[in-house]
Structure formats: C-alpha cells, structure tokens
Design a binder for these strands. Structure first.
Length: 818
DNA sequence: TTTCTGCATGCGTTT
DNA sequence: AACGCATGCAGAAAT
C-alpha cells in the first residue's frame, strides 16, 4: 500500500495515527485527511484552522458567523438566503424549524398564552419564538415546508448532509451567546455549531435543537415553556407526531427521540427544569450523546454567568464514574466531547490544559489520550485535587463550560441528590434521566420540583420513564447503594456461619502446621445456623433453633440442617421431634450460649437480625479476653462470631488462613495488640516452645506415658467445678487449640506420653473440649511462665516466686504468654 | 510495598 | 458490527 498523504493542501502530511474522512470527492469517496485535519473537519473548524488567511469569507446573514464560501471543506455549511447573502446552514435550519414551531405551538400558546405548566414566573416566549417575523414568517415557512418535504422524500438528505455551521469558534467567535438578552436571534443561532450529517437524524436534531438552544437565550423558564408538549419538544413531537404531522404535513417522520431529551423534558416542565441542552458544538460525526448534553438550568446559567461576569457556554457534562472519582485522578472524557471542545492533540502525552472552577480557581490538568482499539481514549489527568475540592464523588456530575469570549474552560459540578439518583444517572440511558441535583452553579435544588422536576400531569411520561428505567437496570455496572452494600456485607458475614460442607462431599485431610484441615472439592452449602456446645461430660453437640416454635434442640455434632429447620426434622431425638415437646435446654443454660436468647424469639418474630458491628467476632473476643483477661461471661455474651475468610472453617477458627490480615495489607507494628497479631504471636510462641521442648526432651524420652488419665480427670473436675457447661464455637476451637498445646506442655513436663503422635491430637481435643471456658480463659490470660510455675511445670525461666494465686482453680495452662 | 502509568479487556450502547 | 468507555491489570517508578 502506497503512502498516504493528507488531502489538506496546507498539511499534506503522510504520517498519521489515524486517517479520517473529509469532504466528498467528485470521483467518489471522501478526502483522506490526517487525524488532525480530519478532526478539524469533523469539528467544523477546518477552514478556520487552515484557511483563515484565504479569501472567500463572508458572514452569515443571521448570526454573523464567518463562512468560508467557495471552499470545498465548507461546501455544506452554507446556504444562500432567499433575501440575499449567505447563511450558515444551521441558522437556515433553525429558522425553518422555528417557523415550524410557531405553527406547532398549541393554541393556548400561539394565542399568546404562556405555556407555563404552573410556573408563574415565566416570560412570554411565544414572541421570542418567532424571531423576526418580518423577515422570516411566511417565506421561511414555505421554505421549511419545501425543505422538509424534500427530506421526506429523502432527496433533501443530501442537501443537508454536510451542513456545517462553521461555528467552531474557539478563537474567532465574534458573537457569543448572550444569556442576558431576552431575545436575540443572532446569538441564539450562534449557539448552534452543529454539523449534522446524518440526514433525517439531522433533521431531528435540528428540530430539537432550536427549542433547547433557544432556552439559552431566554430568561428563566423559557427553555421549556416553549415546548408544546409536556415531554418536551422531542418527545412531544414523537408522541404527537401522528396528529401533528397530519395537521402540518410538514414534519418528517422522526427518528426515535433520545431518551434523554424525553426524560429531561419530562422533568423539565418547571421553568427551571434541568433540560439537556445540545451543546453549541460537537455534532456531526462526533455527535455528542445526549447523556453528555449539559443540563444546566437557565437560572444556573445566568447565575454562573453573573458570578464569572462572563458569558458562559455550557459544553458538556459527565457523571463521574468510580474510576473518574477514584484516587487515580483520571477522568475519562467522552471522546466526542474531548475532540470537540478540547484542543487537538496529536501526541499521546497530550498537553496541559487549564480549567477554572466556578470560584475562579484555576486548575491545570493534563489532557491526553490513550490509543485504544484503533481509536483514542481521552482522559484528564490530575483531577483529584479539583474533584476533592469540589467534593464530588462517583455519581455526581461534572460540567464543562466555556467562557466567551476567550474560550476559557470552566469546570463545575452538580451533586447527585442521592445515590439512587446517581445510580440512575450512572446508567447511560439514564441518560434517561437527568441527574437532578444541586449544581454548584447555583441553588439548583430550589429550581427543582419536589419530585425531581416532574409535574403531576406527567403520568404519561412516567410510564415511559419507568419502562426506560426498567430497561436501564441492566445497564452498565451498577453502583451499589450504600445500604445495599451494608446489607450484603452483613449477609455475607452471616452467611459464613451458615456454610457447611456439602453432605455428600468427602473431605480430604491436609495438615498445616500440625493441624488438620478438611478440604472439600465441592462448594459449601448453606445450612441452618447452629451453636456447638460441649456437654457436662465432655460430649459435643450442637444446638439448633426450630424455625417454627423457636425452641432450641440439642442435636448431634454431625447434624447438618437445612436453612429452614423445624422440630419435626429432628430425627435424632424422637422425644423432641415435635414442637409440642418441651425445650430440652433450660433458659439458664441457653443464655450464656445464646447471647440473644432472651430476646431471640422476639427478634425472630420481627425477623430483624442486625449484628452489632461493634461486637468482636469469636476470635476477636477470645483473643481480647486472652490478652486482657476479660471475664468469661463477657466473652460468653458475645454473639457467635463468624469468620469471613474461610468458609470451610468454623467461626473462631484460628488457622493460619483465618487469622491472616486481609490481603496482606495493613502494617502491624511489632507492638501491635490486635487480635491477629496476638494470635499469631501466641501461636508462634507455642510452636517454638513445642519445638524446643521436643528437641530438648527427646533424648530424655522415656516411656512415661502416664498421666494422661490424670489430665483428663482434672479437666473434668474443672468442668464440673465452675465453668460454663458449654462453650461457643470459637471458644471450642480455641479450647481445642489450647488443649493441643496443653498436651505439649504436659508432655514437656513429663506428664504425658511424649511418644504420642503430635499430629494425632484428636483425642486430646475431645478431652479438652469439656473443660471450662472460664478456666481456659483464666489460664490463657496468664503469662506462660507463671502458669508453668503454678502447675509445677518446668519453665524456661521459672522462679520460685512466680506462682500466682489469681488462678483460683489451678487453672489449666497457658503455654503462651498473652 | 504502594502508587503510578499505559494499555487491554469486555460490557453496554450506538450505528 | 463497531464503537465508547469503565475498569482491570501488569510493569515501572516511587516510597
């Protein structure tokens, strides 16, 4: 393929990251333009960029904009006026449309009655709507009829295909939108710098455009008051096009209206409705999607203009995504907006661009792009300070405007009223919706109707809007409402407790640090939340509450219950397989186990279960108690906690997986006292001690496997003696762990059979399971050496005076210093 | 180890 | 089918 050169004779560049189509060629096809020139062409600034010094410039008879007559690049941007001179195609079209509108306006309006929708403070707009009737009335209407008729027959499409108002006036705007003027047709038209290219679509756009743009030139309320239909002109036309077309015979069949326009207009009944305004520029191939149309009320616009003492041209806006508002500080700009309203950039690195906020503070961002799928993705970098300054977040809207003259960009913001709105707005089609909210431009909220701008007579649009909303639910990645997220989080935590191994799953036993873990191939299943306990004699079982009678039943440990379980399913106890059977656990016994037992039934009935976030989890509680020596009753009052890390593990599991900090993030100081650190330290200490003991005593290993029995008997004694008869899950686990380590300590002092397989700790676990939690907690709260001393165990630094009396029952042991 | 940077991916929208 | 864009991700740079 031969080398390609840009057909812009001023450029003639042969290298370009992207080639664009220019004007149509007589030979067919389109002129090949390099990216820069092509962009200029698309943005209707080709002649302004490259032909500024050439001859042939004339002014539009309507708006005064300069038109490069006789240039192929502007061929479709001009039209000869009936009354002489030339006009930019947009002005011509606008005239036509406005003439049509004057016919469309319902009788109450055309009669001079202001269409206010209940808003009183509205200026008569009908007069304004008829711009310079002397010049344009009948003739323009005829011309319009002709033009649209041609369009209907599609012959007019080409005529309008390449219109370009040539109003890309970053540098050369002579007349700017004068917001303070009541009626200024020239400025009104000035605002439209479109380059519709798409035939009928263009017509539609042009139909919508005038009314919307017109609003910019009128004081409050005008934007919508001229709309002959509640849904705004676009939707209104669409909705009524049948009769409307019949009546006028001039309107083409319109393409489907933009949902944005419709819904905007829906909400825009009020005089200060937030109407999406097609920006003055940025159409044509780079047609701005309605979602980016600035939705600024006239009042806001006026206020902003007043604040900045300038004429403000709203350009576009964007609802901030999570990425935009995130810490990265990159705001993705809509491509069309970036290419239309921002300087052309050829290098990926882009250029610094200065944008001032509404307070006049100037920010400098890096405006750049990334190559992306043979296209570009424009971003503003370094927006974090500005975003933070404006205190906007994802879901809020940032707006971009321009000060005229001068072209200074202005960034503003509008808060989403709430997350729901943000949610709506976030979805493109919600585009569907405007994002009603408070614009930093003004006290916009005051302009909004209580229901977000909708009036009560909006029922028709409401159903449409709801349909759109329903459709939009699937749109994009939805923001999660805060409450939803909270609920989900809670549910997830709770779900951890409900997870059980699949009944049919066969676990694979693996060893990690001398601990057995069950690995299942199958995912866990949801089951009923139960509480594991230990009976007075050391046997373990679990407690489950009937979903029907709310009584607690004692079940075997291995029982796996469905999420809904009733007494009738109690196949393990024939005496208590009916709700009529009395509860087999006394409330006195239950209360320590089921912290919420007292009100559990009440809560159950109300079905409101909101765990107290402030309460520690099982592991937290135990570790805290271990460190602080909390009263066991306090621990017992803690709700059954849940591990959120390891679905296969019971709550309270202190395995290396469950105790590790989340994602490895977060720094823990050496002196950190968090439960994770404490647990890790404790376990490390235990392991080290175990290792040391093994090593030192292995030689002395003799068959002194006595006293296992004595240990057991002591455990039982303790249990009877004072502790709660049962423990919570996590306590059990911890107890087990303690028991394991106790064994090692006992072994170290020669009380246990040191020949026993340290990996086979199950029997010990079973033995220790029945021990008093109180005892355990007392024990674990003691320094290791103290405890060893108390129990006559050899300590690495035992001294005679280390025995303490505060372990009343001769406690069990703590092999670790807590 | 965290943050930054540039690009890739994939979903949703538009053509 | 093409495009736009939100976000993920890997490598680089900074801390």
């Amino acid at each position: 393929m031969g080398s390609k050169s840009c057909m812009n004779e001023v450029c003639r560049g042969t290298t370009s990251s992207e080639w664009k189509k220019g004007w149509s060629l007589k030979s067919g096809g389109f002129a090949a333009l390099c990216y820069r020139c092509g962009s200029a062409y698309e943005n209707s600034v080709f002649c302004e960029t490259f032909h500024l010094e050439e001859s042939g410039w004339r002014e539009c008879r309507i708006c005064g904009k300069r038109i490069h007559c006789g240039c192929v690049a502007s061929r479709y941007l001009q039209e000869y006026m009936d009354f002489g001179g030339v006009g930019c195609i947009t002005c011509v079209k606008n005239l036509e449309i406005r003439s049509a509108q004057s016919l469309q306006i319902p009788s109450d309006v055309s009669n001079g009655t202001v269409f206010t929708n209940g808003i009183k403070d509205v200026h008569p707009v009908v007069v304004e709507n008829r711009i310079d009737d002397d010049r344009f009335s009948t003739r323009r209407l005829l011309q319009l009829t002709k033009a649209i008729g041609a369009i209907d027959g599609s012959s007019g499409v080409e005529q309008l295909k390449h219109e370009d108002p040539f109003l890309k006036t970053r540098q050369s705007s002579k007349r700017v939108l004068n917001l303070s003027q009541q009626s200024s047709p020239p400025t009104f038209f000035k605002a439209d710098n479109s380059r519709p290219r798409e035939g009928v679509k263009d017509i539609y756009e042009s139909l919508a455009q005038p009314s919307l743009n017109f609003s910019l030139t009128t004081p409050s309320g005008s934007s919508t008051t001229i709309l002959p239909f509640p849904g705004g002109i676009a939707e209104g036309i669409e909705q009524s096009k049948g009769s409307f077309q019949q009546a006028l015979h001039i309107l083409p069949k319109l393409p489907k209206p933009s949902p944005t326009v419709g819904s905007e207009a829906n909400k825009g009944i009020g005089s200060q409705a937030r109407v999406a305004r097609p920006p003055a520029e940025g159409r044509g191939r780079n047609q701005l999607l309605p979602r980016y149309w600035p939705r600024i009320t006239d009042q806001e616009l006026q206020q902003l203009s007043g604040d900045l003492k300038s004429n403000i041209v709203p350009l576009f806006e964007k609802i901030l995504s999570a990425s935009d508002a995130g810490r990265i500080g990159r705001l993705v700009l809509p491509k069309a907006c970036a290419e239309t309203f921002f300087p052309l950039i050829n290098q990926s690195e882009g250029i610094p661009i200065r944008i001032q906020d509404i307070k006049g503070k100037e920010w400098t961002f890096q405006f750049r792009f990334w190559p992306n799928n043979n296209s570009r993705m424009y971003v503003l970098e370094g927006v974090t300070p500005c975003i933070q300054n404006m205190q906007v977040q994802a879901g809020d809207t940032v707006t971009f405007s321009r000060i005229e003259p001068g072209g200074q960009l202005v960034i503003g913001c509008r808060k989403a009223i709430n997350n729901g709105d943000a949610q709506d707005s976030q979805t493109p089609a919600s585009t569907s919706g405007d994002s009603p909210g408070e614009t930093s431009f003004s006290g916009a909220n005051g302009n909004l109707l209580p229901n977000g701008g909708k009036t009560s007579d909006d029922s028709l649009q409401q159903s449409v809007s709801e349909k759109k909303k329903a459709k939009n639910i699937k749109n994009k990645r939805l923001l999660m409402h805060t409450d939803d997220a909270m609920e989900l989080r809670i549910t997830w935590e709770e779900a951890q407790e409900l997870l059980h191994p699949s009944p049919t799953a066969e676990p694979t036993i693996i060893m990690v640090e001398d601990h057995e873990f069950e690995e299942y191939e199958e995912p866990p299943v949801f089951g009923k939340r139960t509480i594991f306990t230990s009976g007075p004699s050391g046997e373990q079982d679990q407690l489950a509450q009937c979903d029907s009678c709310l009584k607690w039943r004692r079940l075997p440990v291995h029982a796996l219950l469905s999420s809904k379980w009733t007494c009738s399913e109690n196949i393990w106890d024939s005496k208590r397989c009916s709700c009529s059977a009395p509860e087999d656990i006394s409330p006195k016994d239950l209360e320590p186990i089921v912290p919420s037992y007292k009100d559990s039934k009440k809560r159950k009935i109300s079905e409101k279960k909101v765990p107290n976030e402030g309460e520690p989890s099982g592991l937290d509680a135990l570790a805290t108690a271990a460190v602080l020596g909390d009263n066991i009753s306090d621990i017992a009052e803690c709700p059954v906690g849940a591990t959120t890390r390891h679905p296969r593990h019971r709550p309270g599991c202190s395995c290396i997986v469950c105790i590790q900090p989340p994602s490895g993030k977060g720094k823990h100081e050496p002196t950190c006292k968090c439960n994770v650190c404490l647990t890790v330290r404790r376990r490390f200490k235990t392991l080290m001690m175990r290792k040391k003991k093994r090593q030192s005593e292995r030689e002395a290993e003799v068959a002194q496997g006595k006293d296992k029995a004595s240990l057991k008997s002591r455990l039982e004694r303790e249990d009877i003696g004072g502790g709660a008869p049962v423990s919570t899950n996590q306590a059990d686990n911890e107890t087990n762990q303690i028991g394991n380590e106790v064994e090692m300590e006992e072994a170290s002092k020669g009380q246990l059979d040191l020949n026993c397989d340290p990996h086979r700790e199950d029997d010990i676990l079973a033995q220790t399971a029945g021990m008093s939690l109180t005892t355990l907690m007392n024990a674990v709260a003691l320094p290791l050496d103290v405890y060893l001393g108390q129990n006559g165990l050899p300590s690495t630094r035992q001294t005679a005076g280390e025995k303490e009396d505060n372990v009343s029952d001769g406690g069990f042991m703590s092999r670790e210093d807590r």
